[in-house]
Amino acid sequence: MAAAGAGRVSAEAGEAPEALGPGPVPCALSVNGREVRIEIEPRVTLLRALRHYSDYTGPKEICDRGACGGCTVLLDGKPVASCMMLALDAQGRPITTVEGLARDGKLHPVQEAFKTCDAYQCGYCTPGMLLSTVALLKENPAPSLDEIKRGLEGNLCRCAAYNHIFDAVQMAAKKMSASPAK
């Protein structure tokens, strides 16, 4: 970043940038490796774009305020609350939803571990839990219990299946470090 940044911004403030909306504008998202082209009003959130303007219903709308983690997707490999960002800001950046975890009909090791450990009851928080876990294990392949809790602190499970979820994360960590995948 340039120390001259402040000056540059004000110097260029006179140029009128292109205004978008309020009507629909084209939006190109890269979801699970596939390009998704939709027409949306600029105010549409990434969550709404995924669920209502295309067919990715894995991310869930629960609180719609970034407080529950149900809408978690990975953006540039990092968990984000898709309800609290505009779809237009996610253009050109890789998005992973829960639909993108399984490969060739085979569940992701994290999904397998959740299944084995019965790490859910109603399952509504599961897509978000899975994605936060995938991101956590990528950054920290052998997390401690405290690190798991911190990594998943943005995902609420109102059925309180937390203990099984933590078991599943530990199981997935062991399996994945034993046979490191792609």
């Binding site: 970043m1 911004v9 940038p17």
Partner: peptide
């Protein structure tokens, strides 16, 4: 993000928004 929250709650209804995320000079830590 807070602005989006305020818009969802009908506290703010701006007629026009300026996207700052495209300004690279505002990013980074030195």
């Amino acid at each position: 993000m807070d602005l989006l929250d305020l818009m969802k709650s009908s506290i703010r209804a701006p007629g026009r928004l300026v996207n700052l995320l495209t300004i690279d000079e505002l990013k980074g830590i030195d």
